[in-house]
Amino acid sequence: MATNLVENNSLLDSVDARTRLAGSNKMEILLFSLGTRETFGINVFKVREVGKAPHITKTPNMPHGVEGLVSLRGNVIPVLSLVSFLDLQDPPKEPGKTMMVAEYSKRTLGFLVHEVDRIIRVDWEKVRAPESVLSSNQGLITAITELDNGTLVSLLDVEQILANAFGEAIIVDIPPAQVAEDTGVFFVDDSVVARRKIAEVFDKLGVKHKHATNGVEALGRLQGLAAHAKQTNSPLRNDIRLILVDAEMPEMDGYVLTKHIKSDSRFDGIPVVMHSSLSSEANRAMGQAVGVDAYVAKFDAEGLAETLRPMLER
């Protein structure tokens, strides 16, 4: 894999270009290597720039996998060695000297890798959950896709990696919402960590919840709930007061899922909120382009609760 370093203005498309991907069920992946024969990928929308790693300042009591801190344009950011988190065959001794600077949930971080290859565009329907593939890394690999030459690409669950490094977000006391006891919501997210934290928020709000792990599963379950409501001649809103969707998911992303929901009159009056670690303005614009009612960056439990509360109580 040849190294091909790219900087912010050439790596990322313009807001308009990226917004055009919304609803197309396509994603752009930045391919990279961790010094083995395996190929890994990360959503390019999360990457701000790629370049040679600057001097890393070692600091005491850093969590496992965190190499230290770097100063980047006046900001001090932590740098994680991705090799340290994955169970690789014949792992390299060094963490790599190429750094990807990424933004997750309003947090900027550096990820050390060995080589960066290129950006590819793939259909989400060709992205699958890992199942038994790379079972030793289950929980850290969120999905698998295949290149035209047969090469498998493992997409990292960065949310799980960050939780392993820094611990999961602590959810403080959230006052219950003023809703009826049988108020229900539906959410979908492919990350185990995210599903667990979202469920905690809904539990504290005092609302019942159902969930799915990808967009295809979510659409099928939602359509089933809508069909049952029609059959029993009861308003669907009695069962689902709100739908919370992730942006990135195998098989069908949150943008396409939202388009399906918004084009189905059975879901009229049920707000759709996008909840994503893709927290840039470009991604908010993509959400707006498909009609989401609100966009919340992961993972701010209080912010999520306060966004959802008025929609649940009205």
Score class of each variant (00 low, 15 high):
191 S>V: 01
206 G>C: 06
102 A>L: 14
200 E>K: 14
145 T>G: 09
167 G>D: 10
85 F>C: 05
184 G>Q: 06
146 E>D: 04
85 F>R: 02
196 R>E: 13
181 E>Y: 00
179 V>K: 01
212 A>F: 02
109 L>C: 06
95 P>L: 06
223 Q>F: 03
138 Q>A: 15
231 Q>Y: 05
165 A>R: 04
228 H>Q: 15
213 T>E: 15
130 P>I: 03
200 E>A: 07
229 A>K: 02
176 P>E: 11
203 D>F: 02
103 E>P: 04
154 S>H: 08
93 K>W: 04
159 E>C: 10
170 I>R: 15
223 Q>L: 08
162 L>T: 08
163 A>L: 08
124 W>E: 08
136 S>G: 12
173 D>T: 11
137 N>D: 13
157 D>T: 10
218 A>I: 04
92 P>Q: 11
223 Q>N: 14
132 S>P: 00
151 T>Q: 15
139 G>H: 02
87 D>N: 15
226 A>T: 02
136 S>K: 14
148 D>Y: 06
130 P>S: 10
106 K>C: 06
137 N>Q: 06
103 E>A: 03
207 V>S: 02
184 G>V: 02
142 T>M: 14
99 M>L: 15
188 V>L: 05
154 S>G: 14
134 L>F: 09
220 G>I: 00
217 E>V: 09
173 D>N: 14
92 P>R: 10
107 R>D: 08
103 E>Y: 00
230 K>C: 02
182 D>V: 03
123 D>V: 00
123 D>Q: 13
140 L>Q: 13
191 S>G: 06
111 F>Y: 15
132 S>I: 07
153 V>R: 07
164 N>S: 13
106 K>N: 15
198 I>F: 04
195 R>H: 04
204 K>D: 11
160 Q>H: 11
85 F>I: 08
117 D>E: 13
89 Q>R: 10
223 Q>G: 00
198 I>S: 01
110 G>A: 08
187 F>H: 10
104 Y>G: 00
138 Q>G: 05
187 F>Q: 07
114 H>A: 06
152 L>H: 14
156 L>I: 15
99 M>K: 02
137 N>H: 10
85 F>E: 01
137 N>R: 07
187 F>P: 00
142 T>E: 14
216 V>S: 13
159 E>A: 11
169 A>E: 13
148 D>H: 09
151 T>S: 12
226 A>Q: 05
150 G>H: 10
97 K>V: 01
142 T>P: 06
104 Y>W: 10
144 I>P: 02
209 H>W: 14
222 L>S: 01
225 L>T: 01
120 I>P: 02
97 K>T: 12
179 V>T: 09
124 W>K: 04
